[in-house]
């Protein structure tokens, strides 16, 4: 369980407070108007943004000030998920062993992950030889071998077309449920949320609200969310 206990995030004039729990293995979307602090929230959870007050605990362990690598989070960024000078296999391998000296069984693990995201045969390619969708899948393969308890996605696949994006979202959801990892996904599209999320966190007016059932929330939105959804 991931708990935010009276967490306050401050960046200049910007304030965001959050106080709720997230159950392990859940698939949760974070939606809200742009500038509301969706990215800030997940960045704070991953350790990229400092928390001004309150505490974050993971399965009872205080991770408020833990290093990003010491949290159970694997984040997929909007772009620059891959190191351009490394091969796809090496990029994925970083998820197993950051020093990149893989044993045979670990290499096999990398290949299996590449198979899973349908990138078999691309192991020795460099990122620039891959399309945008393929690059996203390579990053997903790394998250797969990284074996963290949460996969965090900050508006991923924004650059992909609708069909490809839907396909990627489904793949992400499948991969998450196969590994038992929870999924936390920032998006500004309610359709994306409906597509793969069990629960939705609405971020608006300086507050990240506790997660609610997706259908329930989107069908009967509170006024602030209603204004955002239009």
């Amino acid at each position: 369980m991931l708990s935010l206990n009276k967490v306050e995030i401050a960046q200049g004039d910007f304030r965001l407070s959050a106080h709720f729990d997230m159950d392990a293995g859940q698939r949760i979307a974070v939606i809200g108007p742009s500038g509301a602090g969706k990215s800030t929230l997940v960045n704070a959870l991953c350790g990229f943004v400092d928390v001004a007050a309150g505490e974050i605990t993971q399965d009872g362990r205080d991770i408020t000030t833990a290093l990003p690598s010491e949290r159970g989070m694997a984040m997929l960024f909007q772009d620059n998920n891959l190191f351009a000078h490394l091969s796809i296999a090496q990029n994925v391998g970083l998820g197993i062993r950051p020093a990149l000296r893989l044993t045979q069984s670990e290499t096999a693990q990398v290949m299996t992950a590449l198979d899973r995201v349908a990138l078999q045969g691309f192991a020795q390619r460099k990122p620039f030889e891959l399309s945008g969708g393929q690059q996203s899948r390579a990053a997903l393969a790394r998250a797969l071998v990284h074996r963290k308890s949460w996969m965090v996605l900050d508006e991923p696949f924004a650059a992909l077309g609708p069909a490809l994006r839907a396909e990627m979202l489904d793949l992400v959801a499948e991969v998450a449920s196969e590994t038992g990892a929870g999924l936390l996904m920032v998006t500004h599209s309610p359709e994306d949320a409906r597509r793969i999320a069990d629960q939705v966190i609405f971020v608006g007016d300086g507050v990240a609200h506790a997660p609610m059932e997706t259908a329930e929330l989107l069908n009967n939105p509170p006024p602030a969310l209603k204004a955002y959804l239009g």
Binding site: P68, S69, A74, G95, A99
Partner: peptide, 9 residues
């Protein structure tokens, strides 16, 4: 961020 998350030495 990525290298921080991967814990690269």
């Amino acid at each position: 961020r990525l290298s921080a998350q991967l814990g690269t030495p």
